[in-house]
Structures are given as C-alpha cells and as structure tokens.
Design a binder for these strands. Structure first.
Lengths: 157, 157
DNA sequence: CCTGAAAGTAGCACCGC
DNA sequence: GCGGTGCTACTTTCAGG
C-alpha cells in the first residue's frame, strides 16, 4: 500500500542540499548531525531542521540497519513467484506474512500474484518452507546468484 | 556477490541482547546509544561495544535511510524479469546498472537471468526506460499493487 | 560489564538576512 | 522564509575497576 503523504497533492521539492543530505544518510544513517552539517556545508542547527522537515514531509520514512545475511547463516537467497489457487489468495498472503524467512513480498499484476524474497540457511530449507505455500499456490523459484545492483537510492527530484 | 565475513567459517552467534539490539536498530537506526542501552538493559558503554563488535563481525553492514518513493514522485513500482538475448548478458547487466531508476537487481538461476525493481513517475516512463533494455533482452514486467511484507529482518540465530 | 569524568554533540532561544 | 550563534543538557568515549 502506498504511504500517505503529509502534502497530499504532489511530489516534494528538494534542493541540492537536501539531495546531498539524503545521500549522506543513505551512506551512513548514524553519523552525527554535526558531521552531516560539514558535508552539506551548513551549520548543525540548520541541518537538523532540514532533517526534521524531510521527516515531516514524509520523504524520510525512517532509518534502519543493513544486516549481512551470510553473517546470520543465510547462505542462500531465493526469489519466489507465487500464484494462488482459486479462492486461496488471502490465505496465501497470510501464509507468506507468517513465514519470517520471507523478508519481502509484493503483490503484483499479472499471472503471478506475489513476488517474494526468501532467506535460506541451506537448499534443504527451500522445500521445507515452500511446502507451506504449495498447498495453496503454484510457485516458481529462482535462486539468487549475485546482486548486480544492491538497494540504492533512485534519482532525487 | 556474497560478502566475505570477518570470521570466514560459520555463522556468528548472537545472544538475546544482540537480537534485541538489532531489532531496535532495525526499528530506528538513529536512536542514541543511551536509548538503545535502556532497551537492552545494559550500560551505554557496553551497548556501544556490542554495536562495534557486530559491525566488526560483519553482521551489521551499515545504517541507511528509508525513503518514501511516493514523496519523491515515484507513484509506481515495477518488478521486471530480464532474459538477455544470446551474447548480451554482460551488456544487459551494465545497462541495468546504468539506469538509476532500477533501484535493485539480482542475477538469478532459471530462464530469466535478472530480476530487477524499477521506480517510475508514471506509466509512460515504463516504455521509455525498458526501451533501453529490450534492444538486448526480453523483459516481462509486473506492476506492484501493494507490499504485503515490507523489508524486514529474517529470524536471528 | 560497570562507574565516573572529559570531550563531543544536540536542542533550544534568539538574532540577522 | 531560511540560516547562523551561543548556551545548556545530553550523549559518547575512555579510563580504571
């Protein structure tokens, strides 16, 4: 579901300072405001106010940690397309939501209703987890071999 | 490509405190160490050292900002499967990497070589952007209608 | 892993443009 | 409107236990 905006009508206007600030935060969200201020060439209070404004406008949703799945023992990643059997759509969504190894799931147009990302400790785990889904849906699974583009910022307006 | 670990052999061991800490950081990565300390029930210095250890071990890759695509004018999101034409695999990867609206791309097993996520200002932009890819690959596109599971942490060991 | 002191940082009120 | 300065309170870091 698309998040509501503080300003409901149009896309927020950003200036060069905002863009630099957002890039710096994308790079390291825990750096102090004083350091961010140095990077954007403003005083700390002004920078802090920019930050608050971007949060209030809804541009910034929050700040989060990026974990290394391998360090947690997730040596495999799969992308699963899921096509629920007739009448099973809502249940399938609930099943996916309840399996914590599904770290992300989008409902999409087209033949496959859901596209989800799955973290696995080993290939054995794949059948084990998908068994809970295949009762109610057809699945097709692709194993991730590499990630040419890791999550990055889109172009900023 | 899977990231190398500080400890090359096995998955890092986490205790309950580490798990609480990581969850708290996933929730808000910018909260002060003193606040994190309160949540895990440790002193600030001990919490800060945990944090440093988790980064050194490679469990924590970094901290980043979550932006609201709608606020930036990206009213549409698409997931594109890409099957390069013979001999075009490397070029296709490069083309995707160069188009900043592709915010994520995985190389996967199976018929479709790449699965990528695309941010769009409008549906018109879809053809415009995919034109650069379809010279060298077959694509199939699914528009995101909603996101039942937004990026979340997997189960922590 | 904790306490305590020193350095650094953030938040606030107020001023200037 | 937006940004800067100076003060106070908080937070982080390091020492030592």
């Amino acid at each position: 579901m698309n998040k509501r905006l503080a300003s409901p009508t149009a896309s927020v206007m950003l200036d060069e300072t905002d863009r630099t600030l957002l890039s710096a935060l994308a790079d390291d969200a825990r750096q102090p405001v004083s350091e961010l201020a140095r990077r954007v060439g403003l005083s700390a209070p002004s920078t802090a106010e920019r930050l608050r404004r971007l949060e209030a406008q809804g541009v910034i949703e929050g700040f989060t940690v990026r974990l290394n799945p391998c360090a947690l023992g997730y040596t495999l990643q799969a992308i699963v397309r899921v096509k629920p059997l007739p009448g099973q759509l809502h249940l399938v969504e609930e099943v996916i939501r309840r399996i914590p190894e599904f770290v992300e799931c989008d409902k999409v147009t087209g033949d496959d209703c859901f596209i989800a990302r799955l973290y696995l400790h080993s290939i054995d785990q794949l059948d084990e987890i998908l068994a809970k889904v295949t009762e109610r849906a057809e699945t097709s699974t692709a194993i991730v071999k590499s990630t040419p583009v890791a999550r990055r910022l889109p172009p900023l307006p």
